[in-house]
């Protein structure tokens, strides 16, 4: 018998709550990830030290990469739950409107961001896989031997990023995806508060504003990295 919060997945609203909570974790990650990466503008030493530092998080209480793995597992779980809830909800909605063509559907209010959540979501999901294969594992987008696998005292992620983004199509893919991530966050961040019941007329404008700020910071920050590489602002060492 499951009780309490563990029954959330049973209802549509509960699934949305799961999406909001996991979304909250993922937004936190995205913001932190962007912030960490801005260290590349402070030169190779700072940036590589940051990569090394992530692995010693919580030291000396936690061992090498322990907390990093905890974070990774939490993030993976969040992504899985977020995607699972989303697909279950999409299926439910398809059924609710299914088989009924609406001939002259004309939306009055639906923003592009709200309307494209599920498509943006799929793109972002595919992007995450690519991104991990690319900058984490180095198995795509690099010439042989160009990617420097971090670990064992070797943290040259600075050059990894720059070589990675010097590939123009890949950089463009990153930039385009970030625009979609922006849309996703623009609706998602506000929606998170609404779903958790933390929104009301009093706070609506504030929360819409917060969503815009989060979305702008993440998008501008993330796009600045490939742009900086492509324009030669930062160079490999």
């Amino acid at each position: 018998m499951m009780t309490g919060v563990l029954t959330l997945h049973r209802t549509s609203v509960g699934k949305k709550v799961i999406m909001a909570l996991t979304g909250c974790i993922l937004v936190g990650f995205v913001v932190f990830h962007m912030y960490g990466n801005t260290k590349m503008f402070m030169g190779p030493d700072e940036f590589n030290k940051y990569a090394e530092g992530l692995r010693y998080l919580g030291s000396p209480v936690f061992g090498y990469e322990h907390l990093l793995w905890v974070a990774r597992l939490v993030l993976i779980a969040a992504v899985v739950l977020h995607v699972w809830s989303a697909s279950a909800l999409v299926t439910q909605s398809r059924k609710a409107t299914g088989g009924m063509k609406r001939y002259s559907e004309h939306k009055r209010h639906t923003s592009y961001a709200a309307y494209t959540m599920r498509y943006g979501g799929i793109l972002i999901f595919l992007f995450i896989i690519f991104h991990v294969l690319h900058l984490t594992f180095g198995v795509v987008g690099y010439a042989a031997g160009q990617f420097n696998h971090p670990g064992g005292g070797n943290y040259d992620i600075y050059n990894n990023v720059i070589y990675g983004f010097q590939n123009v199509p890949i950089s463009l893919f990153y930039i385009v995806t970030m625009v979609f991530l922006g849309f996703h966050l623009f609706h998602g961040v506000w929606s998170m508060f609404q779903t958790l019941g933390l929104n009301s007329a009093t706070y609506n404008t504030l929360l819409r504003g917060l969503a815009v700020v989060v979305c702008a910071v993440v998008v501008v920050g993330n796009i600045s990295f490939p742009v900086a590489v492509l324009t030669g602002v930062i160079q490999p060492v």
Binding site: S12, K16, L89, Q92, S93, A96, K107, R108, H109, S191
Partner: peptide, 22 residues
């Protein structure tokens, strides 16, 4: 009410706001 609403086959809310607009 939420359980019944789901059982009746209604979709879920993605906070789009089309409902309030009409």
């Amino acid at each position: 009410m939420v359980a019944t609403q789901d059982a009746e086959g209604f979709g879920n809310c993605t906070n789009i706001g089309e409902c309030a607009a009409v």
